[in-house]
Design a binder for these strands. Structure first.
Lengths: 96, 96
DNA sequence: AGCTGGCTTATCTTTATCGGTAAAACAGTA
DNA sequence: TACTGTTTTACCGATAAAGATAAGCCAGCT
């Protein structure tokens, strides 16, 4: 339950990193040099197997020249799936 | 240089967490129970002294019922209803 | 003064990130 | 079949996050 949502959360981030890297035709080695993060570490993050630190994700976002926000959530709002709507329109789907 | 930008980055996140917590009149103890993160750990994050993991920030955002995006960057220029379009050139100020 | 609540800091243990290196799996392609 | 490039996985050591606990600090209040 909790662990599943967490791994989905990390896997989503990893997919976005990988997609952005592919858009710029960068290899893991190249992104590793740009970020200072090793290629194995990047691979773990992209495959959702590592719970990276905030500054680590910030380095990746900077190297890809996108705001960190672009790595975290879909910019398309979707309808709520759970229960209560917190007054403004967010649902967040109750991460954890 | 690099370390300074990092600490600004973390301090900004911490300030947003603290502001949102204050908006909801929550103490560190209460947020600790909501998130499962200890109050000392939350204090370190809010004061910008800790480089938290992604799932840790996700827990905080969920407890505060805001999208994680709200903790990471200023969204004062958004205020739109559904069409959140980045659309224009980012600078990101070269984190790292 | 003595409280009390909220926050910070310190110490400790467990656990995980992270870089480095190396090896292994997986494409493609000749 | 080999060969090459890319990615994944495994191990190692150093560093750091996170929980727990305790102590310190700083308000406000009786």
């Amino acid at each position: 339950m909790t662990a599943e949502i967490e791994s989905n959360f990390l896997a989503d981030i990893g997919r976005r990193v990988r997609a952005l890297r592919a858009d710029q035709d960068l290899t893991l080695e190249q992104l590793a040099r740009l970020t200072g993060i090793s290629a194995p570490a990047l691979s773990l993050i992209e495959t959702g197997k590592r719970d990276a630190r905030l500054t680590t994700l910030a380095k990746i976002a900077a190297a890809l020249r996108v705001p960190i926000r672009a790595l975290l959530e879909d910019q398309t709002n979707d309808a709520s799936t759970g229960g209560d709507a917190p007054a403004e329109g967010y649902d967040l789907g109750d991460y954890l």
